[in-house]
Design a protein around this nucleic acid. Structure first.
Length: 480
RNA sequence: GGCGGGGUCGCCAAGUGGUAAGGCAGGGCUCUGCAAAAGCCCCAUCGUCGGUUCGAUUCCGACCCUCGCCUCCA
């Protein structure tokens, strides 16, 4: 299985390249350690389905790396201080912590609903103010930060470039042609240059009680600095992977690189981040999500429509991460049917396997699956491998050609790939006693060849949300 | 205006210089008392126009359409 290697697109080089850990000698429980940082949520509201595409994708990356034998240190920040948060806090009268704590908990809950492994660490910006201040001081001492008349501290891109660093590693920048100046010049006149960005924002009256003391007076951190400070604090000045949505490429990630490499904490020749990976956005019903179009969905909105996190996960994982994905309700229905197909197959296998132990042979499913995901996480091809396997398995099952050991072997292969897909077992609901009674009544009527009565009971059951399937081993009940 | 993605079956979505995976939906058949599940079979010439080539959906050029970033944003 290690004949091939994971290849990943790197925004830094704009190429698909082999993934290799930065520090292969660093291990945990015998596994090479991989440091992975994913820009997390700003907790001022519920996350929407677009946000979760990125997080489910990050989960796929993490699971696949773990599947491939790495120990992943998965860090996801929680941005818990920011303009929108401050505004909402003032409106609600809650404390900052009460307000953000609520949305943070709900975010984690949504993550779990979507069957994501919770990141190994979820640092909050407000709990790393000291790290942030230290990093800004470091930048200041290196001459890359300056205080503006308004008391804020900014990062100087000109000075940064002056010391041989490159600004524009992730995107091609052409400041003359960019419209950046037109829009921001008006209210950001305290900056020396329009492209400079805030490291520390001086307290303003609207901030109310939300501020921290610093060497530059009361204020709060800028947006980009928190990710630099927290990622380096938890993963070291150089780490393997940094993920995020494509919209973060510029300016957020570019600025993170500038701050982090500008601080010069990396060993000579080491980058801040080796591998940048960005997930594309999604559209809903072919359109950009917006509240006015009514196609703006949170996870809980979809749950309220009767879909499960498992179905949403399947759909979000059905397309390649660098492709704009079109999220549709039809797609969600399709995910439900597709999942049922897999579940049916797995259930039959489980039945045939009984308690048999799996045999030693390697599985073509796992091989095809790994080949697909090694290729820049080509999850569509991985699903094709899964469904090819389902068809072949069903064929063998229909022909009663599977021994318990073979079924157990097939099941083991499925469980292996599901470590990565993360679908888990279908949640089984207990059948209510009155439904069982109806089913038994139908079985009796059927036996007495009273088919009219049997069909009436089948309809009755269906109206109550249950489907009866007559199998060689007797009738089975399934939720409709 | 600059930069970067896309346009493949009704819908979603892979892929390749030699006549196009998979899922959903649809049609037919088998099995079934009826169903369901499952199986079998059917269902696209790849935005437009040129070029390169023995051969292009896949390479090049132009054009059309569409999405994103450049400002808070997954």
């Amino acid at each position: 299985m290690d004949a091939t290697r994971l290849q990943l697109f790197n925004t830094l080089t704009r190429r698909v390249e082999p993934f290799e850990p930065l520090f292969p000698d660093q291990t945990k429980d015998g596994r090479p350690v991989v440091g992975m940082y994913c820009c997390g949520p700003t907790v001022y509201d519920f996350g929407h389905i677009g946000n979760f595409r990125t997080f489910v994708f990050a989960d796929l990356v993490r699971r696949y790396l773990e599947f491939r034998g790495y120990a992943v240190n998965h860090v996801m920040n929680i941005t818990d201080v920011e303009d929108k948060i401050i505004r909402r806090v003032q409106e609600t009268g809650q404390s900052l912590r009460e307000f953000t704590g609520h949305y943070e908990r709900e975010f984690i809950r949504d993550l779990q609903t979507l069957l994501c492994r919770v990141p190994t660490q979820t640092p909050r910006a407000t709990e790393h103010i000291a790290d942030i201040i230290a990093l800004i001081q470091r930048l200041e001492s290196r001459g890359l930060a300056y205080r503006a008349p308004d008391g804020s501290v900014y990062f100087s891109i000109q000075k940064y470039q002056g010391c041989g660093c490159r600004y524009g590693q992730l995107v091609n920048l052409n400041f003359d042609a960019m419209r950046v100046g037109e829009r921001v010049a008006e209210d950001e006149y305290d900056k020396e240059s329009v492209a400079d960005f805030a490291l520390w924002k001086a307290r303003v009256p609207e901030d109310g009680e939300i501020f921290w003391e610093s060497p530059w007076g009361p204020g709060r951190p800028g947006w980009h600095i928190e990710c630099s400070a927290m990622s380096m604090a938890l993963l070291g000045p150089s780490f393997d992977l940094h993920l995020g949505g494509e919209d973060l490429v510029f300016p957020h990630h570019e600025d993170e690189i500038a701050q982090s490499e500008g601080a010069g904490l990396q060993a000579p020749g080491r980058p801040f981040v080796k591998h940048w990976v960005h997930a594309s956005h999604l559209l809903v019903e072919g359109k950009k999500m917006s509240k006015s179009l009514g196609n703006f969905f949170t996870v809980r909105d979809l749950l309220a429509k009767g879909y499960t996190g498992r179905e949403i996960r399947q759909l979000l994982l059905s397309a390649h991460y660098r492709e704009t994905f079109n999220f549709t309700m039809d797609g969600l229905d399709g995910a439900r049917t597709a999942l049922a197909r897999i579940d049916e197959c797995v259930a039959k296998l489980t039945e045939v396997a009984g308690g048999a132990a799996p045999g030693p042979e390697s599985s073509s499913l796992v091989r095809a699956f790994v080949t697909a995901l090694d290729d820049d996480l080509n999850v569509s091809r991985a699903w094709a491998a899964v469904f090819d396997w389902v068809r072949e398995t069903n064929r063998a099952l229909a022909g009663q050609q599977l021994s318990p050991v073979q079924a157990a072997t097939a099941l083991a292969a499925w469980q292996q790939v599901d470590q990565v897909l993360g679908l888990g077992a279908k949640s089984t609901s207990d059948v209510p006693a009155e439904i069982v009674a109806l089913a038994e009544e139908r079985a009796a009527a059927k036996k007495a060849r009273d088919f009219a009565r049997a069909d009436a009971l089948r309809k009755e059951l269906k109206d109550r949300g249950w489907v009866v399937e007559d199998t060689p081993k007797g009738p089975k009940l399934k939720p409709a």
